[in-house]
């Protein structure tokens, strides 16, 4: 149940067997969630955090007009709302994009980890710091990159994150969201997103359609997006 989380953490630091036990011991119920269900509502009081075991989820904020900004995507092995452990409610919603499986981590059990296991606590702290680093990169995209380069950058990021948890096969990966939702990550309408994706395809870089991504040329896609994975903190270090 926590294999993907362990892959994600072990790419960055060692996780001792007793720390793995402690994580498993902190895990509570497991739930299956249908696609497009809000699992955390903004403002709701939280007494547990959720680990995404399988599927694809997003964090989003919206305006009264209905315009929605997806502020983060989460893949298997990501905590969806570990920041909710200290915040106790969120300023945004969390929603499934595809059918998902989540594992609940009651906050009292996370509290025990923080009291008994300082290194494991630092690894969990690392993962919320990593979320923040990804947010900063998205800010750069939203503020400064052009549409095609924003889309290319997001595909590079997802490729890298999914590769860590073993979900990439020969330049292809599943991205079970529609083009409206992909556009909501980029701040573009679905029609504009279609134009952007067509440009990536015509340049021979990548193709996204019907929930499937195919990377034609990773080197050129990275160069086009100015993708530098440093912000994903991929080195295994003592943290």
């Amino acid at each position: 149940m926590i294999e993907k989380l362990l892959l994600k953490l072990r790419a960055r630091d060692a996780v001792a067997p007793e720390e793995e036990e402690a994580l498993l011991g902190a895990m509570g119920e497991v739930e299956d969630i249908p696609a497009r269900k809000t699992v955390v509502k903004r403002g709701e009081t939280l007494n547990r955090s959720m680990l995404l075991v399988e599927g694809l989820m997003c964090r989003f904020k919206d305006l009264r007009s209905g315009r929605r900004q997806i502020t983060a995507l989460h893949v298997a092995g990501d905590f969806l709302d570990l920041h909710g452990f200290t915040l106790k409610h969120l300023d945004h919603d969390v929603m499934s994009l595809a059918p998902c499986r989540i594992a609940l981590f009651p906050h009292d059990r996370l509290t025990r980890i923080t009291e008994e296991r300082p290194h494991l606590t630092r690894l969990l702290w690392f993962s919320t710091n990593l979320d923040a680093a990804i947010h900063r990169e998205w800010e750069l995209s939203l503020g400064q990159r052009t549409g095609p380069s924003k889309a290319a950058h997001l595909l590079c990021e997802l490729y890298t994150r999914l590769q860590i948890v073993g979900l990439i096969g020969e330049g292809r990966f599943d991205l079970p969201m529609n083009q409206t939702e992909f556009g909501e990550c980029l701040g573009l309408t679905v029609v504009h997103t279609n134009r952007v994706l067509r440009e990536l395809r015509e340049r021979g870089l990548a193709h996204f359609r019907n929930g499937k991504v195919r990377i034609y040329d990773m080197e050129r896609l990275r160069a086009f997006a100015e993708f530098d994975p440093t912000y994903l903190y991929l080195a295994a270090l003592a943290r």
Binding site: T146, G147, L188, T189, V190, V191, H192, R195
Partner: peptide
């Protein structure tokens, strides 16, 4: 959506 999209694409 069509009008929003025109504005978005032309802005870019």
């Amino acid at each position: 959506l069509a009008v929003d999209s025109v504005r978005s694409m032309v802005s870019e």
